[in-house]
């Protein structure tokens, strides 16, 4: 992944010099350790600002929407990991952005690090983190540790089976080997093995710290509605406070709006300031989409999503 950034920069410089794209959406360094921020680079001079490391956990497809595409039909380029590219495909399948206006710079991804798991190993604030290949050297005032990336991989990256972008214009590196998992959804199976009351308690416990900041929604590339159901006031679909019923309703409906569309990119969890694993909701839908419809979102520009089409073979045993 180290050499990736050099290739990304070379590709971007080339694109700007040929005038092929108006801007490049990528990652830039953050202001604190273990953080990056999205950046829109508009000139060759700014290409140096781009970075790519194991803390690029947000989903850049979120910044490619109908409203911020150039109106004159010019192209924009996006630095895309496997999941970002799948969300770009979802945008295209849902007629949000045309394929010919997006130039996908595919990045073979070996997973992103979970900064919370790293922070857990430290008693005080982390002041520096440098990445060298698959290891990090993390420093705080009290201690210094060398941590292997595989030990602090994000949960969604551990169970990722599409590290390489399925659709791209150019790849910034050799494709990496895809994982083959015997059990792709052990977390969902674990919850399913509980009795109904324990399951309800699990989700109540999970969301009890939710402050309704909607960071999960805002970080999600799927949530591009001009007005979200939680922001509607006429009718008001769901209460706006921290009543546990309203919180559960918000999380349930937010997740269901992602049914058959979620790529499990983990941006929602990455963005959550309270560290809530909201993927516990969406993962169940992803499992069902795979089990019931053999569907994984964002893999194919020509296939319609399962909840978008009718087929006589659709499971219908729930309709009585």
């Amino acid at each position: 992944m180290d050499t990736c950034i050099e290739k990304i920069k070379a590709i971007c410089t080339d694109l700007f010099s040929k005038g092929e794209v108006e801007k490049v959406i990528g990652f830039a360094g953050g202001s604190i350790p273990m953080a990056t921020r999205p950046i829109a680079v508009t000139s060759e001079a700014d290409v140096e600002k781009l970075v790519f490391n194991a803390f690029c956990g947000l989903n850049l497809a979120n910044y490619v929407t109908k409203n911020n595409l150039p109106k004159d039909g010019a192209k924009i380029a996006v630095v895309a990991k496997g999941c970002d590219a799948r969300n770009l495909v979802t945008h295209m399948v849902e007629n949000q952005v045309p394929r010919d206006q997006v130039y996908i710079i595919g990045v073979p991804c070996t997973g992103m690090a979970d900064k919370r798991r790293i922070a857990q190993r430290f008693e005080d604030e982390i002041t520096q983190c440098t990445q060298d290949g698959d290891t990090f050297t993390v420093t705080s005032a009290l201690q210094q540790e060398v941590i292997a990336k595989k030990d602090v991989l994000r949960h969604n990256c551990q169970y990722c089976t599409h590290r390489n972008p399925p659709v791209y214009d150019v790849m910034a590196g050799e494709p990496v080997e895809e994982q083959i998992l015997d059990q792709p959804f052990p977390d969902v199976d674990h919850i399913a093995s509980m009795d109904p009351e324990t399951r309800w308690d699990h989700f109540a416990e999970l969301t009890k710290n939710c402050i309704r900041c909607y960071a999960c929604r805002n970080a999600c590339p799927l949530c591009y509605c001009p007005t979200c159901f939680v922001d509607e006031s006429s009718p008001q679909w769901v209460g706006k406070g921290q009543d546990e019923t309203d919180i559960t309703t918000f999380h349930f409906l937010r997740a269901f709006h992602c049914a058959g569309r979620c790529t499990d990119c983990g941006a929602c969890v990455e963005a959550c300031p309270m560290g809530i694993n909201v993927r516990d909701f969406t993962r169940k839908l992803n499992k069902d989409a795979l089990d019931l419809f053999g569907w994984e979102a964002g893999m194919d520009l020509d296939r319609r999503p399962p909840l978008d089409v009718y087929s006589p073979d659709d499971p219908d045993d729930f309709i009585k």
């Binding site: 969902v188 399913a192 109904p196 309800w200 989700f203 559960t248 349930f252 169940k284 989409a289």
Partner: peptide
């Protein structure tokens, strides 16, 4: 899928129709 998610969240399937 909505029914499955509700059931997964601990809602009694008999309450859904």
């Amino acid at each position: 899928m909505m029914g499955n998610l509700l059931e997964h969240m601990g809602v009694d399937r008999n309450r859904l129709h």
